[in-house]
Write a protein that binds this DNA or RNA. Sequence first.
DNA 1: AATCTATTTAGAAGTTTTTCTAAATAGATG
DNA 2: CATCTATTTAGAAAAACTTCTAAATAGATT
Lengths: 93, 93
Amino acid sequence: MGFGETFKALSNPARREILTLLKGGKLSAGEIAARFPLTGATVSHHLGVLKQAGLVFETREKNYVYYQLNASVLEEVLLWVADLKGENPNEKL
Amino acid sequence: MGFGETFKALSNPARREILTLLKGGKLSAGEIAARFPLTGATVSHHLGVLKQAGLVFETREKNYVYYQLNASVLEEVLLWVADLKGENPNEKL
DNA sequence: AATCTATTTAGAAGTTTTTCTAAATAGATG
DNA sequence: CATCTATTTAGAAAAACTTCTAAATAGATT
């Protein structure tokens, strides 16, 4: 997926808030949209960007599309930043 | 400085490459610019964005402006991502 | 099958970003 | 002090982003 896409996804405040919401567990598109002063269409767009970046994945149930954090891509971001910082890989974990 | 500014700064590929270059130690604006197929003016703009975001700081010597990584802001980013990932703060370090 | 509900897609308007060229600044050197 | 060197600022053009409304899709319910 590439860090470009991932960091671009993280660069938007609404998208960062969506990710923070998802720390509490999976939520449907509608549940997420309800917490923002944005239209459902706009939130759907942001969810698409996050999904494309690999930061979230979706699962479908009934009429709903649930989103949740993708820990593995977050770990990649973590490692990229840690490496930039010049951290010994063993110092973390 | 806020994560908005920081992640926005990280969202550009040229800026991420600049940061990667700076892993090797401080470099002048001109030395950085020489490694990119961009004008000095454009690189100067990117350096300004990185500085504004707190990701680098500058020191002046002679005619030169040297840039280097700011580890403390990188650490903040690291913690933000780690927290999002739901990591125990003690698991790192 | 008709309709309701949840979500996405399309298209457009306004804003921000990226990059350039040209000009300005500011310190060093002859 | 005139000028050279390193870097930044100004202004403009093109591309990308954010958000909206309206319409489309797709699954569930009656």
